[in-house]
Amino acid sequence: MNEKDLYLMAYLKDNLSAFDNGPVLLDVKSTQFVRVNLLLLKAFSSMPGRPGMFIAVDRPHHYMLHLMGMHQIDPQGLIFIDAISRFAADTKNSHSPANLLNAPSNIDSLPSAIRDWAGNSPHPAPMDLQRCRFAMIDNISSLLLYNSFNNVEVFLQDFIDVLTSHARVQIPLLVDKERNCMLYEAARSLCPHEISVNDGILASMSLTSKRNGIARIVDSNEV
């Protein structure tokens, strides 16, 4: 991660800490999903005692773990729900605390499965939802490749309900407003807060890092 990334991470962390728990909508360009997911994971991992959940749809969880390792992001306390590995025949076994789904389709049934896992059923990675402090999906747009829009909409609503009824949990939802405005509007109706990570913000990170070395974060009002 370069200086610009560290600025962006601080920007995300500052904004997230200003909000109560619950879903937060992040308007992010599709090409920046991995970067922002890694920065969010790094931000969350730097807050001790923040176990979380990561739903892998776009790439196998073990590759995400590999990337986290590259960025010195501590995976301790993170539980993966991997929706793609079995489907992609990439792996049949999990490499870390992970529950493998057979496929990313029928995603609307996942919230009730999470509810079951959170009970006493024996699963590879038992989840203590009470302790869960953040939940991320990599990424919602990819779910549309395997599910109808309505199913994704139902999933989002139920996912947020299940998690927020069990725990004080932050749920950053990354959507590219420009590319998928319908999904963006659906997510926005569920999120009381929104953070923009658009081109203007990214450009300001670049300018700030060039100007100041490592000094201050551009206030979002300045952008």
């Binding site: 747009s141 549309l144 829009f149 998928n180 405005c181 319908m182 509007e185 109706s189």
Partner: peptide
């Protein structure tokens, strides 16, 4: 959930880089 009239794309489209 209602969506604005201008929003009509529900399908996931391939992102492209020029």
């Amino acid at each position: 959930m209602s969506t604005p009239d201008t929003c009509v794309r529900a399908r996931a489209e391939i992102v492209r880089l020029t």
